[in-house]
Amino acid sequence: MGSTENIWNAVEVPESHSSEVPSSSLAVDHSLSLPEMKPRIVELCKDLFKQWSSLDASDFSLETVSGGITNLLLKVSVKEKDGNVVHMTVRLYGPNTEYVINRERELQAIPFLSAAGFGAKLLGVFGNGMVQSFINARTLTPLDMRKPKLVSKIAKQLRRFHEVGIAGSKEPQLWNDVFKFFERASSLKFDDHEKQKKYETISFGEIHKEIIELKEMTDRFNAPIVFSHNDLLSGNLMLNDEEDKLYFIDFEYGSYSYRGFDIGNHFNEYAGYDCDYSLYPIKDEQYHFFRYYLKPDSPHEVSDEELKALYLETNTFMLASHLYWALWALIQAKMSPIDFDYLSYFFLRYNEYKNQREKSFLLARSKFSGSQIDS
């Protein structure tokens, strides 16, 4: 497994956007301290935005907005010659994230999503990241996500998000991505002896069988294919409390996929990074979400049949979310230098898949057999 090998096609800025958005070949080391990083960020900004080329380094300031388990996000403030201060975000991709993220797909989608009012505006791209407009809002917590008022706002926004059209192929990518992840995850070798021992306890034959069976089951739903966020966790939801405005951010994993996957994945994220799946929304909580998703302007007109159908769809695709992120975590356990126990995260996600499998498959089969099962 060479370091240049990639499960995706080579990542390039698409031709259609390279002329519209400034680009730079410069890269910034993700591991530097903030003081060490500043001169490199200043150089990058001057290279991307020629109007700032004569500014002094003291006209630039930066602070860390977040350090997730994939990227580093910085707020950069620039004092222009006329005294105006411009704020923007610089997103540094985590090292080796190209093994799990299709950057070309992301860059293709951002202008369309931005035009529809989602996320931040793309201002520039560089060797290992992008520059976007700054969003003045706070990041939600997993507990915020389940508050009824916010649930309805998220559901309405997700419906609108799913109505955005992105240029290019509309082929759903979920299973293509899962099989790519499986291929990569099943052929790893860890230098760390303890990690290797844990890794060797995983039955990839069993996982492959589960992927095939789950794909066959989900295919029977003929679920709507929409442009999906695919990573709608609390960290990718921001709220401006003063304006009561909700933002979706970070479209790294966005692709055409299945409606039920995007919703089921969102519900899984109620558990947070601690994976407390006792927080997974109960049926009534899901129905509250579904009403505002299906009919944002008249949620109480949604029929019981519509609610039940989306409930069965979502709670079958929810299983696919566990497989997707479990396999993702194995790749990250090998590739990512970030201090996070990805190997344990694999077991948390895969074990929850096994915990929920029987109930979800039973519910799905009830739909196709016509039998009534108490869910």
Rank of each mutant, 00 (worst) to 15 (best):
S375Y: 15
W175T: 05
T314D: 00
H193K: 14
D276Y: 08
P281A: 05
S336E: 13
Y253A: 06
F227E: 11
G370W: 00
L237I: 12
Y311L: 07
I166L: 13
H87I: 09
E210D: 11
Y353Q: 00
L122H: 01
H162S: 13
P337A: 12
S228D: 08
E80T: 09
W175Y: 12
R184G: 14
G260R: 02
Y247M: 08
L123V: 05
H162W: 07
G83C: 07
R220D: 12
G165K: 15
L307D: 03
F134N: 05
V178N: 01
S33A: 14
G272N: 10
K308A: 10
F290N: 02
A115H: 13
K79I: 01
H229Q: 09
L140E: 02
L34P: 05
V226L: 11
K334Q: 11
F221S: 08
D191P: 03
E352D: 11
G124P: 01
F134Y: 14
K334D: 14
V302N: 06
G68W: 03
G127C: 07
W175P: 00
D177G: 11
E301L: 10
W328G: 02
I282L: 14
E20Q: 14
Y287S: 07
K308R: 13
I135A: 05
S16W: 15
D191E: 15
L32P: 02
E242V: 11
D262I: 01
L239V: 10
K295T: 03
S255T: 13
N230M: 08
Y342I: 10
M318I: 12
K334S: 10
L214A: 04
